[in-house]
Amino acid sequence: MTKLSVNINKIATLRNARGGNVPDLLQVAKDIQQFGAQGITIHPRPDERHIRYQDARDLRPIVHTEFNIEGNPQHNFIDLVLECKPEQVTLVPDAIGAITSSAGWDTVKNESYLTEVIAEFKRNGIRTSIFVDPVLEMIEGAQKTGTDRIELYTEAFAHQYHLGNEKAIEPYVQAAMLANDLGIGINAGHDLSLDNIEFFHNNIPKLAEVSIGHALISEALYIGLETTIHKYLQKLKS
């Protein structure tokens, strides 16, 4: 079964909008796991506009499923990950001030840099994943860095699928098949939702994990967090 990791950045955004501790990020993380999700994802950014670095430290003893920390591997981020030792770190080439992730790594251009960073994380027993576009050259480049997994950047698929273009899945299938051949695990995330997750899951061979935040939290406003998580889990079983 493909695992569901819930990104709780939006919970932190809501908390920070008013100060204080409502909603309680730690309690939400506990609830998400109790409702059946197999992981918690956070993506701290340098300005800490949603997840704060201290949140990562506070969440470490709370997360008993899988803790996934995403981010651009700058010095402060690397130090945080080595301190918290999550089960997985996902490397994302975010620009400072970016609203959200907008592209995967150029794994060819950044091979040396990524190889060095990944080696450090793996020496500390942390599984690594690289955020990549569904481009075969980038998958091959990822394999050369020594990464354990890739995370397919799914915004393009989600946009085209919403327009009725099911063929948008094709480059993702090809990327997944190549990753399987190269012995790289496959994660996916960004704009996956209840509307498209079943189709994506059913077409991607050996999809290990999806990381979903914005859509899931938005859907939960209408049908509740527990119901939303259960719906995702059901679609990932189909």
Results as ranks from 00 to 15, higher is better:
7 N>W: 02
149 R>T: 04
10 K>F: 06
57 R>F: 09
127 R>N: 04
90 T>V: 10
120 E>C: 08
121 F>R: 00
85 K>S: 10
134 P>M: 09
25 L>S: 04
14 L>H: 05
142 A>I: 06
112 S>V: 15
101 S>T: 15
125 G>R: 11
86 P>W: 05
20 G>M: 13
66 E>H: 14
48 E>I: 08
143 Q>E: 13
52 R>I: 08
12 A>P: 01
11 I>A: 02
2 T>V: 12
142 A>F: 01
54 Q>Y: 11
41 T>F: 05
115 T>W: 04
102 S>H: 13
114 L>E: 00
44 P>N: 09
135 V>I: 15
68 N>W: 03
34 Q>N: 15
148 D>Q: 09
108 V>T: 13
33 Q>A: 10
127 R>Q: 08
44 P>K: 02
144 K>S: 10
19 G>H: 14
122 K>Y: 07
125 G>H: 13
142 A>M: 05
127 R>Y: 01
96 I>V: 15
64 H>K: 15
35 F>C: 06
116 E>T: 14
10 K>A: 14
43 H>T: 05
51 I>L: 06
77 F>I: 06
15 R>T: 09
59 L>N: 02
24 D>L: 10
120 E>Q: 13
147 T>H: 03
132 V>L: 08
118 I>G: 01
42 I>P: 01
7 N>A: 07
9 N>H: 04
106 D>K: 08
94 D>F: 03
73 P>S: 10
11 I>F: 06
142 A>R: 00
64 H>S: 13
140 E>M: 07
143 Q>L: 07
11 I>P: 00
118 I>R: 00
70 E>P: 01
50 H>L: 07
134 P>T: 09
113 Y>N: 05
15 R>Q: 12
132 V>Q: 00
76 N>P: 06
49 R>A: 08
97 G>M: 12
45 R>H: 07
5 S>T: 10
115 T>D: 05
119 A>D: 13
128 T>I: 06
144 K>G: 04
64 H>A: 11
102 S>T: 14
11 I>V: 15
121 F>Q: 00
115 T>C: 07
57 R>T: 14
117 V>H: 01
2 T>N: 05
14 L>E: 07
16 N>T: 10
112 S>N: 14
30 K>A: 12
31 D>Q: 15
93 P>W: 04
131 F>C: 01
75 H>K: 15
54 Q>P: 05
127 R>S: 03
39 G>R: 02
98 A>S: 15
86 P>K: 03
146 G>K: 06
110 N>F: 13
81 V>I: 14
51 I>Y: 03
87 E>T: 08
129 S>R: 02
36 G>Y: 08
13 T>V: 13
62 I>A: 09
6 V>A: 03
8 I>S: 03
52 R>M: 12
133 D>F: 01
144 K>W: 04
50 H>Y: 10
77 F>M: 04
147 T>F: 02
113 Y>Q: 10
15 R>S: 09
